[in-house]
Amino acid sequence: MRVISSFDHSIYLELALTALEEHGIEKRSILAVPLEKAAEKPKLLDSIHRSDGTSLIDIGAACATALTVIASSIGFILHWGPIIWGLIGAAAGFIIGVLVDWLLKRQKSNQRKSQVIKGKSTEVIVVIDCEAHQMEAVEATLWKHMAFGVAKLQ
C-alpha cells in the first residue's frame, strides 16, 4: 500500500515523519521530496493561452484612459485641440501607469525574495509505503499534522 501527501515545509512535516516512525514505518519506506520554485520572470504581456497575473499594461491602460479623458476635456480650451491633447494624455498616462506597476511589482518581488531567505519555501510531497493494516494510522497521522492533502494507492 502507498500513501501520498503534501505538506508545507514546516515543523509539522518533521513531526509527522517522526510520528510515522513511531507507528512502525521504517525510514526507508518514507520518501519526502521538496518541490522547486519556478524561477520564471514575469512577462510584459499575457496571452490568451497563458496568464501569470503579472501583466504590466493593466494599470497603464487604466491611467491612459483616465488621462485621455482629462486631457481631451482640457484640450477644448488649449491651442492644439482635444484630439492632440487626448493622444498626449493617453501616452503620458500609459507611461506613468506602466512605471507605477513596474515599481510596485519590483518592490513586491524584493519582499518575496526576503521571505524566501527567511525560510519560506515550497511544498513537500511525502510518499509512504506501508502495510494494509497500517494505512488508517498513517492517514490519521498525516491529517493530524496538517497535511494539505492525502491520497491512498492500493
Rank of each mutant, 00 (worst) to 15 (best):
M1K: 12
R2Y: 12
V3A: 13
V3S: 07
S6Q: 12
F7S: 01
H9N: 13
H9P: 02
S10W: 01
I11P: 08
I11W: 11
I11K: 14
Y12M: 06
L13M: 03
E14A: 08
E14Q: 09
E14W: 03
L15T: 06
L17C: 02
T18P: 02
A19C: 06
A19D: 14
L20K: 08
E22Y: 06
H23E: 09
E26W: 08
E26K: 15
K27G: 12
K27Q: 12
K27D: 04
I30T: 05
A32N: 05
P34C: 04
L35K: 09
L35Y: 11
E36Y: 07
K37Y: 09
A38D: 09
A38P: 01
A39V: 07
E40S: 14
K41F: 08
P42Y: 09
P42D: 13
L44T: 13
L45Q: 09
D46W: 11
S47G: 15
I48Q: 05
I48S: 06
R50D: 13
R50V: 15
G53E: 02
T54N: 13
L56T: 02
L56N: 01
I57N: 11
I57S: 08
I57V: 15
D58K: 14
I59M: 12
A61S: 14
A61F: 13
A61D: 05
A62P: 01
A64V: 01
T65G: 15
L67K: 00
L67I: 00
L67M: 08
T68K: 07
V69H: 00
V69E: 01
I70L: 14
I70E: 01
I70Q: 02
I70R: 03
A71N: 09
S72E: 00
S72M: 07
S72V: 00
S72H: 02
I74N: 02
G75P: 01
F76K: 15
F76R: 15
I77T: 15
H79V: 15
W80Q: 14
W80M: 15
W80A: 15
P82Q: 01
I83R: 05
W85D: 01
G86M: 06
L87H: 02
L87R: 03
L87G: 06
G89C: 00
G89N: 00
A91D: 00
A91C: 05
A92M: 11
G93Y: 05
F94N: 04
I96H: 02
V98Y: 05
V98F: 03
V100M: 08
D101F: 04
D101H: 07
D101K: 10
L103E: 05
L104A: 09
K105D: 04
K105F: 04
Q107N: 08
Q107H: 11
Q111E: 10
R112Q: 09
Q115R: 11
Q115L: 10
Q115K: 11
Q115N: 09
V116S: 10
I117G: 04
K118D: 14
S121H: 05
E123F: 07
V124F: 02
I125P: 06
I125E: 11
V126Y: 04
D129I: 03
D129Y: 07
C130R: 04
E131I: 08
E131Q: 12
E131Y: 10
M135C: 15
M135D: 10
E136F: 07
A137S: 13
E139H: 01
T141C: 04
T141N: 01
T141D: 00
T141W: 00
T141S: 02
L142G: 04
L142K: 07
W143V: 13
W143G: 05
H145F: 14
G149F: 11
K152C: 10
L153V: 10
Q154K: 12
Q154R: 11
